[in-house]
Write a protein that binds this DNA or RNA. Structure first.
Length: 731
DNA sequence: CAGTTAAATATTTTT
DNA sequence: TATTTAACTG
């Protein structure tokens, strides 16, 4: 008798779900039901193998994935998953540090530094070391620090011989001292500290090793070194004694697109070496795309070396061919897409089913304009999230100070926001005192006031600020969270400050502050919260670790615009992959460095496999990037697709677009003038040929009468013609 | 201290 | 090109 949980799964999926106690690698191709397998396996472990939810640990990368997993498990087993540890690497690390803050030398109320806060602090550190910010850009230093932490390296592990490394090491060291003094933990530090806790504290380590019998990791191809080491410590594998947890990793080496931020695909192979007797299962049946799309995607990714090997297949239909549209510039590309979407809509399809994918965010603007022009509602992914907004961060900084006075990053942010007469000069004095005495800014400010080192006006202002924070804690400490935040926003003067500003921007800021109060009112404390964590502290952690869900108007029927990266894990019936040009996709930067081109190819694979029914690929012969016109060749990736899966669309100016459309104006500059000088024709100009009919001038090469021009004929496609021989008429 | 102007600079992103 | 940030001025 087969277990009901296995009923609707294919053979491979069943094998993965029902595997007995052993380590397992599930190579799950795009659209192969990866999450389904993960969720069913957890349910199966509990129902069939009598595994207690208490001994299950499931790790994901994003909060969204964690929430989805939890939700799906609950609806599958019909009961709470409270006892299970399900979360992101960072969320779980935070949980560990909270529970063992004393063991890792953190104050009880330590706060999390997001990357924005981190950058400010790094910048401050560089200044305090009297280093030139031009020579040592804070961004790069921040990147360096995080990269080292991701490798598990502390400053003392670095033996930089060259001057560059030595200085960066110095910055890292000073930054870490500042963090420790203020009780601040950045994202990478969460992982590193949690790792050190498990590594160095046998009692804690053995406790968790005994507890977690089953460890499941999603998107394993995206793990970095410290995350890999983390899982290994939890599992107890490679240690001489102690209990062993069984680790299931799920991932797809072909979808590894985060190598540039420290992810190591090799961790999959490393897993097979480090863990004994690993069962490998390939999920290759795809339930998402047409066979045409899969065939093309397989062909593209087949050009990569050293793959673990996997070929997606489907028993679905071939579907339509992939359309390829060669636009003459980015405006034309956008206009064409808008036209296609209008057709899609006229056929009664939903706009939410359409995605526009691009390599870099800068490409979104032109697409947006075209959507606006065609009155197609759209939604852009990856904007500023709620808790990242300036006004919200201001409010949170006040709350952080109330929660703990040592938070230097928070103090820096709001000591003069709104302005209260504490200028750069005064703050500089406080910083200097703090550095000299090795204390936090708060303590330094207080000492300077009591010592009367500060002069009259400054002393008053600083004193008033210190008193404000103290009073706020005294008076609102007992309030419910929402009410507390409301009072803090008002009494601090933040609300008044934004209310006084004019313009639409300021209005939304005021709205956001009100929304923050609202969010606090509805904030449900996590069930696992320990008793020594105040509601305020749990809210602050929530704000730092989950910088806000997507926007509210999610339900509007709108086209989705996003980068290829953020499309991973999603699927859409109709997908447009735009800007598929050499230099843009693959991007120029990736073509220089070894290994990066393959990652671009994987990105292409990811993009293609988002499409369920129809994939449309577009590229522009000419594109304006940062103010200069670029001529691009078509991306090599298109050449890697089987030509019989492609349908090259002829350029046709859609009927709805007026001749005065902005795209035509585009050609009256630079390159176009030059083209006119050489050939007598302008780029974008309409011409007529006796045999090929009407077309648009795309490009030119050479000079004088021997020069050739490329014309995209409406009916005959694109052709290169020598100006002297082709009898062309202007239309 | 606030407002203005000049200059630098711009894949990809989550936590 | 457009946006952000540092330096300058009233």
């Amino acid at each position: 008798m087969q277990h009901p949980l296995l009923a609707e799964l294919n053979d491979k999926q069943c094998e993965a779900v029902a595997a007995h106690e052993r380590h397992m690698l599930v190579l799950a191709g795009a659209g192969s039901g990866k999450t389904r397998v993960l969720v069913h396996r957890i349910a199966y472990l509990m129902q069939e193998q009598q595994v207690s939810p208490y001994s299950i640990l499931a790790v994901t990368f994003t909060n969204k994935a964690a929430a989805e997993m939890r939700g799906r498990i609950e609806s599958l087993i019909g009961s709470s998953t409270r006892a299970m540890w399900i979360g992101t690497f960072h969320g779980l690390a935070h949980r560990l540090l909270r529970a063992h803050y004393m063991d890792v030398g953190l104050p009880q109320n330590f706060q999390i530094l997001d990357s924005d806060d981190q950058q400010r602090l790094v910048k401050r550190t560089i200044r305090s070391l009297n280093l030139d910010e031009k020579r040592w850009p804070p961004k790069q230093a921040q990147w360096f620090i995080n990269a080292k932490k991701d490798e598990g390296l502390r400053p003392h592990h670095l033996d930089g011989y060259d001057f560059n490394e030595r200085t960066l090491k110095e910055i890292y060291d000073a930054y870490q001292v500042a963090c420790d003094r203020a009780g601040l933990v950045d994202f990478a530090e969460l992982l590193l500290r949690a790792h050190e806790l498990l590594r160095d504290n046998a009692i804690v380590r053995e406790h968790y090793q005994r507890r977690f019998r089953h460890i499941l990791v999603d998107e394993f191809q995206d793990t970095n070194s410290i995350q890999y080491a983390w899982i290994k410590l939890f599992s107890g594998v490679g240690e001489s004694q102690g209990a062993t947890g069984f680790v299931t990793i799920v991932g797809d080496d072909d979808q590894s697109i985060y190598g540039w931020r420290g992810a190591k695909v090799e961790n999959i192979q490393q897993f097979m070496r480090d863990y004994p007797d690993v069962l490998t299962i390939r999920l290759e049946q795809n339930y998402r795309s047409t066979s045409t799309i899969l065939r093309a995607a397989n062909n593209v990714i087949g050009n990569n070396q050293g793959r673990l090997g996997k070929e997606l297949w489907t028993d679905g239909s071939a579907g339509e061919p992939i359309d390829v549209y060669a636009a003459f510039n980015e405006m034309d590309e956008a206009r064409y897409i808008a036209g296609r979407i209008e057709q899609w809509r006229e056929h009664g399809n939903a706009l939410t089913d359409v995605a526009l994918l691009y390599r870099s965010n800068a490409q979104s603007r032109v697409l947006e304009e075209a959507m606006l022009h065609a009155r197609i509602p759209y939604r852009i992914y990856g904007g500023l999230r709620f808790f990242d907004r300036q006004e919200v961060k201001d409010a949170l900084a006040y709350l952080r100070l109330i929660a703990g006075r040592n938070d230097d990053a928070a103090l820096e942010r709001v000591i003069n926001t709104p302005t209260r007469g504490i200028g750069d000069r005064t703050v500089g004095i406080i910083r200097e005192a703090a550095r000299d005495r090795g204390i936090t800014l708060w303590d330094a400010a207080r000492q300077l006031v009591t010592e009367k080192t500060l002069t009259g006006r400054a002393a008053n202002a600083v004193g008033a600020f210190l008193a404000l924070i103290d009073t706020l804690e005294d008076e609102t400490g007992d309030f419910a969270l929402g009410r507390q935040v409301d009072v803090v926003i008002k009494r601090s003067g933040l609300m008044a400050m934004y209310e006084a500003e004019k313009g639409e921007k300021a209005e939304t800021r005021v709205e956001n502050l009100k929304e923050l109060v609202n969010a606090c009112d509805h904030f449900a404390e996590p069930e696992e919260a320990d008793e020594n964590m105040t509601p305020l502290n749990s809210f602050l952690a929530h704000a730092a670790l989950e910088s806000g869900d997507e926007q509210a108007d999610e339900h509007q029927d709108a086209v989705q615009l996003m980068t290829l990266h953020s499309a991973k894990g999603l699927e859409f019936p109709l997908v447009f992959m735009t800007g598929v040009e050499e230099g843009l996709f693959p991007s120029q930067q990736s073509m220089d460095e070894a290994g990066r081109l393959e990652e671009e190819r994987r990105l292409c694979y990811v993009g293609m496999t988002r499409a369920m029914q129809k994939l449309v690929i577009t590229y522009a012969e000419q594109r304006r990037i940062y103010g200069t016109d670029m001529l691009h060749r078509v991306s090599r990736f298109i050449g890697e697709m089987p030509s019989d899966a492609l349908h090259h669309v002829r350029m046709k100016v859609p009927a709805y677009s007026s001749p005065s459309a902005p795209a035509m104006g585009r050609f009256h500059s630079g390159a176009s003038h030059e083209a006119f000088e050489q050939t007598g024709f302008q780029l974008g100009q309409r011409v007529r040929h006796s045999k090929f009919g009407e077309g648009t001038v795309l490009n030119y090469e050479g000079t004088g009468p021997q020069s050739r021009i490329q014309i995209n004929f409406d009916d005959a496609g694109s052709k290169w013609l020598v100006v002297a021989y082709a009898r062309l008429d202007r239309c």
